[in-house]
């Protein structure tokens, strides 16, 4: 298997690498469930979480993942706007890289930030914790681990993703992963929330949620940012959005009994997802959160590891 230097996105991974990370994540679940949640795997490694966008849950997940593997984890919240000039980004990156961390975990509102920084920083592994509307690989690996636990393999299954596909990095990463792993994606949104030529990912496009539900093995609800909806005239009101694209238990029945419910969080209850669904047994939303830590442990371990080679012990 090709070893990993950075993790920018699903686009750069092949099937073998994706499955490797998911399986590795699976083996870390156990450590998280012990009373003593610590392994020395990354002892002496430094991980910097550099977050230019607020994200308590992703940052916390990376922090816990690093700490449970005994890495030294430092969190930096750098608030910046997308329009602010970028020298500060490069300067920040170079300054932190000069302190010799092993891994830089980056969240930024500008697509391509990780690729950009990697070009200028040597000797630092970069993990994309979400860049603009581009990719969010650790979220997708988390989802794949959740689906592995539920189904064994996602191959041949149909995942129906609903919401603001246009601005969603989660959507893009899933659309790429679906092709590589052989599952089907249906995306559901009004045209105002779809990116140009999205069907070229090989997904099915629906505008009517109820039409998309039959035959779905999982429904994946994306978070709605209400200001984004109404400011850009993408939708007239939250009320109408909920009526057209909100998931409630009544609607979920159309998908069949075994359909799972996923959400990358944080949820807007009563907007894209009703409480009765969010808290139902079909909901794997908290499992996603748990698996998020395991996947991030796997990603950090994989990036800190050598070239692979021999399996087994001494």
């Amino acid at each position: 298997m090709k070893s990993l230097k950075h993790l920018f996105g699903i686009a750069d991974l092949d099937r073998e690498q994706i499955e490797y990370l998911v399986n590795l994540g699976d083996s870390f679940i156990d450590i998280n469930r012990r009373s003593l949640k610590k392994a020395p795997t990354l002892r002496g490694k430094t991980v910097i979480n550099l977050f230019f966008e607020n994200s308590t849950r992703t940052r916390t997940s990376f922090e816990i993942a690093g700490k449970r593997l005994s890495a030294d984890v430092i969190n930096i919240s750098a608030s910046t706007s997308a329009t602010k000039k970028g020298e500060s980004l490069l300067d920040t990156g170079q300054t932190l890289a000069a302190m010799q961390p092993h891994v830089l975990v980056i969240r930024h509102s500008i697509s391509g930030t990780c690729e950009f920084l990697a070009e200028h920083l040597e000797n630092t592994a970069i993990v994309n914790a979400g860049d603009g509307a581009h990719e969010h690989p650790t979220q997708i690996l988390t989802d794949l681990l959740t689906l592995k636990q539920a189904w064994g393999t996602p191959e041949g299954k149909t995942i129906t993703m609903v919401g603001d596909i246009a601005h969603s990095r989660v959507a893009r990463s899933h659309l790429l992963a679906a092709k590589k792993l052989g599952y089907k994606m249906r995306i559901v949104a009004p045209r105002t929330l779809l990116p140009a030529e999205v069907e070229r990912y090989g997904c099915e496009v629906y505008h009517d949620f109820d039409e998309a539900l039959p035959g779905s093995d999982a429904v994946y609800m994306l978070r709605v940012q209400s200001e984004r909806l109404t400011d850009s005239c993408a939708f007239p009101s939250i009320r109408e959005y909920h009526e057209a694209y909100g998931l409630n238990s009544q609607r979920l029945k159309k998908a069949g009994d075994d359909c799972l419910v996923l959400h990358p969080g944080p949820m807007n209850r009563g907007v894209e997802i009703a409480t009765d669904v969010a808290d139902s047994v079909k909901s794997h939303i908290l499992a996603q959160v748990e698996h998020g830590v395991a996947i991030r442990m796997a990603v950090l371990a994989a990036l800190c590891g050598g070239d692979g080679g021999d399996d087994g012990k001494e």
Binding site: A82, T83, K84, K85, G86, E87, L89, L90, H108, I110, S111, G112, T113, F116, H120, G132
Partner: peptide, 11 residues
């Protein structure tokens, strides 16, 4: 350089 080396959407 500074006007360009800052990521695609702000270059």
């Amino acid at each position: 350089e500074d006007d360009k080396r800052c990521g695609l959407s702000c270059a």
